[in-house]
Design a protein around this nucleic acid. Structure first.
Length: 670
DNA sequence: GAGCACTGC
C-alpha cells in the first residue's frame, strides 16, 4: 500500500487508488425490509419477518422442552417470542423470563413490549436489573439481566417461579449466560425428577454456530428465523496491512470523498488511545481537504467518555469500538483487531492485549452497516486472513478468574463443582486455582477429597462482589470499621471515580493532591468519598476536583446495596473515624492473597505467585516504596503492575494467614 | 514514571 513518512496531503486519498477488492462470492446476506415509522404498532408487529412463522413456531415451542432459535438482528425474536408464548397460553400460569446480557437492553425491551401490549410497564410486562425492579405480582413477561436471574437462583435453584426461561443473545457467551446454561439445565432435570411443573428453555442466538447449543441441550431442535438485515457489500484489502491504523486513515478519506455526506462511517478500533489519535489525525487532514469536498465531522466514541458527548449528533465520521447502538451507519471499516482480556490461571494474571477478532465478531461488525439500508463493510485485511480467523470468540468463562463462579455454583447446591456441566469447559487448572483461592479465603473446605461450602462462604456469596471483597466486608466488624470498608469496596467495584484528562494533567494533580493519604490508594479514595459526601454530591465540586460524579453516584448505590446485605446478615456497622489503621488491618486480613514485599533491589515480589511486580505510577505510593503492601489487582501491560495499593504491616499479613505465609516463605528459600 | 475493551450481580 502507498505509504509516506510525512502526513500525506489529502490528494493522495483521491478515489481510484485500488485499495479494496470486491468480494463477489459473498453478496448481501439477507433480505431488504420495508420500514414505516408512522405505522400503527399492531400493524408493525405483523410486518416483522417472524410474524409469518408464528403458527409453526408456536406449534414447535408448545411441544419442545428445549429449543434453539437462530435469528438475525431485526427478526423481532426478542420482542415477539415472549408475547407469542404468552398469547398462546404457553407457560401459564408461571412467569416467562427473558434474559439479556446488558441492563439497557433489558429495560428498553421491556418498555417496547409493554407498549406493544398497551399496558403500563411493571404490570403484565416488567423488568428486573440491579438497583431496579419494575415488576409486580401481575408480571408474566419479565425481562432481566442474566446476572439477575443467576442471583435469584441462589434462593430458588429450581427457578420455580418461572415456567419458561428465554436466554437471549446467547452467542455473546458472557460468564453469566454460560453459568445460566448449566443452571437452567440442572433445574429442568431436577424439576422432572421431582415431578414439578416442567421448565421450558429457549436459547436465542444470532450466530450460526448452533451445534454446540443443540448438543448441550439434549440435541434440541434448531429453529431458524429470517432476519431483516439489508444487503451488505464486503470488501477486503488486496494485501495484508502491516499498519491497520494507517490503513484505517486512508480508507476513511477514500470513503469520505466518494460517499454522500449524509452517510456515516463507523470505524471499529481497539481502544481509547488509538481512537483519540486517529481522530486528531483525521481532523488535521480534514482542514486541508480540496474545495468541493464536504466537511468532515469526527466523533470519537468510547465508554469512558461522559454520556453527553456520546449523544452528540454526528454527520460523517464516527470512530468507535463498543457495542453501542447507533443508526444511520452506511459504511463500516473493520480493523480486524480488538482489545480483549486473557487470563493465566497459574499466575492469576489478567492480560489485556490487542488481538485479532473472530469471524463471528467480524460479521457482527459488518452487520452494523446494514441496519437501515444497504451498506458496505471495508475489512482492513485480506480474504485469506479472514478465512484464518477463529470462527467464534473464546467464551469469557474460559478466560477469566473463576473464583466467584465457583462460589456461586456451590451456593446453588451443585454437588460436584469441579465437574460442572459447562457448555464450554474452563481448563481444569483454572477451576483448581479458583477452588484453592476460595479455600484460602475460608469459603470452602475439603473433606475426604470433597469440596464443600463453609458458613463463611455462604455469607460471602450473598454479596454481589468478588469473594475477597466479600470476605473483607465480613471481617470488618472485628476491626470496628465496616462503614469505611463498605465505602472502599464500593469505590473499588466501580470504574475509576477519578477523572484524568491528559491535557489538564497539572490541574488534575493539584486538585487530587489534597486527598492523598500516605497510607495508600484505598485511604485516598476514602478521603475523596468522604469529601464528596460532605458537599452532598455537589456536581460543581466534582468538576472542580476532577471527580467523576456519575461513577461517584454509582458508588453510593453499591454501598447502599451492600449495607442492606450487611443488615440482613446482622453485621455490626460502625465507623472507626480517624482510626484508619483499623481499616488497613482489615484490608490486610481480607486481601492477604494480594500481598507484595519490597526486595533489596527496590522491586516488589508478589507473595502469592512469587512474580516480580511494580507499583503502578498512578498509585499515590509510587514514590514511597513501603516494605509491605496489599494491592487490588495486577495489570500486565509494559510490566506487571499492582494497582490500588494499601500500606500494611508484615505482622498483619502473618496474623491473617500464618500457615499460608509459612508455606510461601518456605518456597522463597527453596 | 504509565496509559486500562466491554459487561454484570
Amino acid at each position: 500500500m502507498p505509504h509516506d513518512p510525512e502526513p500525506p496531503p489529502a490528494k493522495k486519498f483521491k478515489p481510484g487508488s485500488v485499495f479494496f477488492r470486491l468480494d463477489k462470492n459473498k453478496p448481501g446476506m439477507l433480505l431488504p425490509r420495508k420500514g414505516n415509522v408512522t405505522t400503527p404498532i399492531d400493524v408493525q408487529r405483523k410486518q416483522l419477518p417472524i410474524y409469518q412463522a408464528k403458527p409453526q413456531l408456536l406449534n414447535q415451542l408448545r411441544q419442545l422442552h428445549n429449543a434453539i432459535l437462530i435469528g438475525e438482528t431485526g427478526s423481532g425474536k426478542t420482542t415477539q417470542i415472549p408475547q407469542y408464548l404468552y398469547e398462546a397460553g404457553i407457560g401459564r400460569p408461571g412467569v416467562i423470563a427473558i434474559t439479556q446480557p446488558r441492563r439497557v437492553a433489558a429495560v428498553s425491551l421491556a418498555g417496547r413490549v409493554a407498549e406493544e401490549k398497551r399496558t403500563q410497564l411493571g404490570k403484565l410486562v416488567g423488568y428486573t436489573v440491579r438497583f431496579e425492579d419494575v415488576t409486580s405480582s401481575e408480571t408474566k413477561l419479565k425481562f432481566m439481566t442474566d446476572g439477575m436471574l443467576l442471583r435469584e437462583a441462589i434462593g430458588d435453584p429450581l427457578l420455580l417461579r418461572y415456567s419458561v426461561v428465554v436466554l437471549d443473545e446467547a452467542h455473546e457467551r458472557t460468564v453469566h449466560t454460560d453459568v445460566l446454561f448449566g443452571v437452567v439445565k440442572t433445574a429442568q432435570r431436577r424439576r422432572r425428577e421431582l415431578n414439578k411443573i416442567p421448565l421450558k428453555v429457549i436459547v436465542m442466538s444470532a450466530t450460526m454456530d448452533v451445534d454446540l447449543f443443540s448438543e448441550y441441550f439434549n440435541k434440541s431442535p434448531v429453529l431458524y428465523l429470517e432476519g431483516r438485515q439489508h444487503p451488505i457489500q464486503i470488501y477486503y484489502t488486496k494485501h495484508p496491512q502491516s499498519d491497520y491504523l494507517q490503513a484505517a486513515l486512508i480508507s476513511v478519506f477514500q470513503i469520505h470523498q466518494e460517499a454522500p455526506p449524509s452517510h456515516d462511517i463507523l470505524v471499529f478500533m481497539t481502544g481509547q488511545e488509538e481512537i483519540e489519535a486517529l481522530a486528531r489525525t483525521c481532523r488535521d487532514i480534514a482542514k486541508h481537504l480540496p474545495d468541493g469536498c464536504s466537511p468532515m465531522v469526527v466523533i470519537p466514541l468510547y465508554a469512558s467518555l461522559p454520556p453527553a458527548q456520546q449523544l452528540r449528533v454526528f454527520q460523517h465520521l464516527i470512530l468507535l469500538y463498543t457495542s453501542l447502538t447507533i443508526s444511520g451507519i452506511k459504511y463500516v471499516i473493520d480493523t480486524g483487531m480488538v482489545k480483549a482480556k486473557r487470563f493465566n490461571p497459574d499466575s492469576g494474571l489478567e492480560v489485556l492485549a490487542v488481538q485479532r477478532v473472530s469471524k463471528a465478531q467480524a460479521w457482527q461488525r459488518a452487520g452494523r452497516a446494514g441496519r437501515e439500508d444497504s451498506g458496505s463493510c471495508y475489512r482492513l485485511y485480506t480474504e485469506q486472513e479472514f478465512d484464518n480467523l477463529i470462527p467464534m470468540t473464546v467464551p469469557e468463562i474460559q478466560r477469566c478468574n473463576l473464583a466467584s463462579v465457583m462460589l456461586h455454583l456451590m451456593t446453588l447446591g451443585i454437588p460436584d463443582v469441579m465437574n460442572f456441566d459447562f457448555m464450554s469447559k474452563p481448563s481444569p487448572e483454572a477451576v483448581r486455582a479458583a477452588v484453592e483461592h476460595l479455600e484460602l479465603l475460608g469459603a470452602v473446605e475439603r473433606k475426604e477429597g470433597q469440596v464443600s461450602l463453609t458458613a463463611l462462604g455462604k455469607k460471602m456469596a450473598s454479596f454481589p462482589l468478588e469473594p475477597r471483597y466479600a470476605k473483607t466486608i465480613l471481617l470488618s466488624p472485628d476491626y470496628c470499621c465496616s462503614e469505611e470498608v463498605l465505602s472502599i469496596v464500593s469505590l473499588l467495584s466501580v470504574d475509576s471515580v477519578l477523572y484524568n484528562p491528559p491535557a489538564r494533567r497539572e490541574e488534575v494533580l493539584a486538585a487530587h493532591k489534597k486527598f492523598i493519604s500516605s497510607e495508600g490508594d484505598h485511604m485516598t479514595l476514602l478521603n475523596i468519598y468522604r469529601a464528596f459526601k460532605k458537599v452532598g454530591g455537589n456536581k460543581e465540586w466534582c468538576r472542580e476536583n476532577f471527580v467523576n460524579s456519575r461513577n461517584m453516584n454509582l458508588v453510593k448505590e453499591v454501598q447502599a446495596q451492600l449495607r442492606e446485605i450487611c443488615l440482613k446478615l446482622s453485621l455490626k456497622l460502625e465507623s472507626c473515624g480517624s482510626e484508619t489503621g483499623n481499616v488497613r488491618r482489615c484490608l490486610a486480613h481480607g486481601m492477604f492473597i494480594n500481598a507484595a514485599e519490597l526486595q533489596p533491589d527496590g522491586s516488589y515480589l508478589a507473595l502469592d505467585t512469587h512474580q516480580s511486580v511494580a507499583i503502578h505510577p498512578s498509585s499515590v505510593l509510587f514514590q514511597a516504596k513501603p516494605a509491605y503492601v496489599v494491592f487490588n489487582e495486577l495489570l500486565h501491560t509494559s510490566r506487571c503492575y499492582m494497582r490500588d495499593l494499601c500500606l500494611v504491616d508484615a505482622d498483619w499479613l502473618l496474623d491473617a494467614a500464618p500457615e499460608y505465609f509459612g508455606r510461601k516463605l518456605h518456597l522463597t528459600k527453596s
